[in-house]
Computed example of a mutant assay.
Amino acid sequence: MEQSEDRILVEELAALGATSGGSGRLTGLVARLLKKNVHEIDLVVPLPFDDAVRHVVTVLEGAGRRPGRPTHVEPRGDRELIRVVTGGGAGGLNPVVVTALVIRGAGNTTAVKLRAAAKEGLIKQRAGEKTAARIAELLSR
């Protein structure tokens, strides 16, 4: 079953808190209360659907790791959802969930709805916005 964006972010922050010598449980509790910085970008990729899915998988896996799913994606149907967790913010330490919905288009074009979300603390880093822009640039190449 696909985990929710919020749950992934809370688990990632809790793990980060535990590895840095703190209490992962307390960090996870606090993370639940934090607001998210979310940014969405719509792209059109000049590739047929199957090629576009492979391109998106390559770019996203180069940027992060897939939470709890195998890395190989075989396109099926007219839509494919690909999700990774990457680092954003200062030093790349803030977990960012990046989700790409690849949608079959007409001819040799494919639509990609890109979404990046990160929890925001007292210091606003806009990790979701910055990561979405960075990934969109990579997908456009």
Rank of each mutant, 00 (worst) to 15 (best):
L13N: 03
H39Q: 15
A15N: 07
T110C: 11
I82V: 15
G88F: 00
G128H: 00
E12T: 13
E5Y: 03
G89R: 01
G17R: 07
K119H: 09
I123V: 15
V57N: 09
T109Y: 10
D50W: 06
R66K: 07
V56F: 11
D78P: 06
G77M: 00
T131R: 07
A14W: 05
T19N: 03
N108G: 09
V53G: 01
A31S: 10
L33N: 09
T109Q: 14
T27W: 03
R7T: 15
E129W: 00
G91Q: 05
L101M: 15
V98T: 06
P75W: 05
R141G: 11
E129R: 00
G64W: 03
V44F: 02
V57W: 00
I8M: 08
S23L: 11
L16V: 08
T99H: 00
A117F: 09
E74M: 05
V73F: 08
I103G: 01
L26A: 13
A14M: 08
N37A: 05
M1T: 14
A100L: 05
F49S: 01
S23P: 10
A18K: 13
L93G: 04
G28V: 11
T71A: 14
V44I: 10
M1N: 09
V96A: 03
R32K: 09
I123A: 10
A117L: 04
L47I: 02
G92L: 10
L101N: 15
V44H: 02
A117Y: 07
R83P: 01
R134Y: 00
L47M: 14
S4C: 10
I123K: 08
L139F: 14
V97I: 15
G89P: 03
G68M: 10
G21M: 12
R54E: 11
R65K: 10
A63L: 08
V112T: 08
L9C: 06
R83I: 05
L26C: 04
E5H: 06
A15G: 07
D78Y: 07
I135F: 04
H72C: 02
V59Q: 02
G21S: 13
G24H: 08
G92T: 10
N108A: 12
R104H: 03
R65I: 10
L114G: 02
V44N: 05
N94P: 01
A136K: 04
A18N: 09
E61V: 14
R32Y: 02
L34Q: 13
H72K: 12
V98M: 06
F49T: 02
D78Q: 12
A127M: 02
P70Q: 12
A63T: 04
N108H: 12
T19C: 03
R79S: 04
I82D: 01
L114S: 02
V112G: 02
E12Y: 08
A52V: 14
R69N: 03
